[in-house]
């Protein structure tokens, strides 16, 4: 990475903090690290308004369900699959009211899946609090075949659609929830730089 250089489209994440001005709160967390982020949030304070927590647990990781049960006063929903967690979110939104504050902690895929769902309800991703936890793995959008490959940990990733070796760029599309991937050996076929894990 070039020093002092910053790509505007690359999202910046920060630790979750309760928004005091709210009508209700919705917290969505993924995996062990997400569970811990939720615990940290409840350490700050217990807001007055109603709170719903949707927790997607991670097979083999630490499970904060028991700990969260003690601190979440109203509504804790725990799921062991991503689809079920996203379905629970979809079920929550039709009745949701303005002033609902949304907090997300998890991988980028988790948070941008959520951003796309709530966008249908007129919520801008800028109004969602996002904390990156667990992994820096990226979703990569192949500019050649338009397939999205999830869980890229390396600077170069094979496209799940066309198989091309893609260089994972820092340019991020909020609409797609993915970083741009460009064929790495377009000019010099077969010339692939060293593959390194840079998104652990």
């Amino acid at each position: 990475m070039e020093r002092g250089y910053w790509i505007r489209s690359k999202p910046v994440y920060s630790a979750l903090v309760w928004q005091q001005q709210a009508n209700a709160h919705l917290v969505l967390v993924e995996g062990s690290a997400g569970g811990l982020a939720a615990m940290k949030l409840f350490q700050q304070m217990l807001p007055q308004q109603s709170i719903t927590v949707i927790y997607e647990t991670e097979a083999g990781g630490a499970d904060y369900t028991a700990a969260l049960k003690k601190v979440v006063p109203d509504d804790l929903q725990v799921f062991n699959s991503h689809d079920a967690a996203m379905k629970a979110l979809e079920a929550h939104l039709p009745e949701a009211l303005m002033g609902l504050r949304i907090y997300v902690a998890g991988s980028e895929k988790f948070m941008w899946d959520i951003a796309q769902i709530v966008l249908h309800y007129g919520v801008d991703d800028a109004d969602i609090a996002k904390e990156l936890t667990g992994t820096l793995a990226r979703s990569v959008y192949c500019v050649h075949c338009k397939a999205i490959t999830h869980n890229a940990h390396t600077n170069i990733q094979a496209c799940s659609g066309c198989g091309k070796k893609l260089f994972v760029r820092d340019h991020f599309s909020r609409r797609l929830g993915a970083y741009m991937g460009l064929m790495v050996d377009a000019e010099d076929p077969g010339q692939i730089p060293e593959i390194e894990e840079i998104y652990p």
């Binding site: 928004q19 001005q21 709210a22 009508n23 939104l93 949701a96 009211l97 303005m98 002033g99 609902l100 504050r101 709530v118 309800y121 007129g122 919520v123 801008d124 800028a126 109004d127």
Partner: peptide, 29 residues
């Protein structure tokens, strides 16, 4: 108001201010 509502106000100054303050307090972006 359902999620995704936009509010618009036009009227006397105190009414406009009250609406903006109330919406902010309730967590409207």
């Amino acid at each position: 108001q359902p999620l995704g509502t936009h509010v618009y106000v036009c009227g006397p100054g105190p009414m406009v201010v009250a609406m903006i303050e109330t919406a902010r307090t309730l967590g409207w972006p």
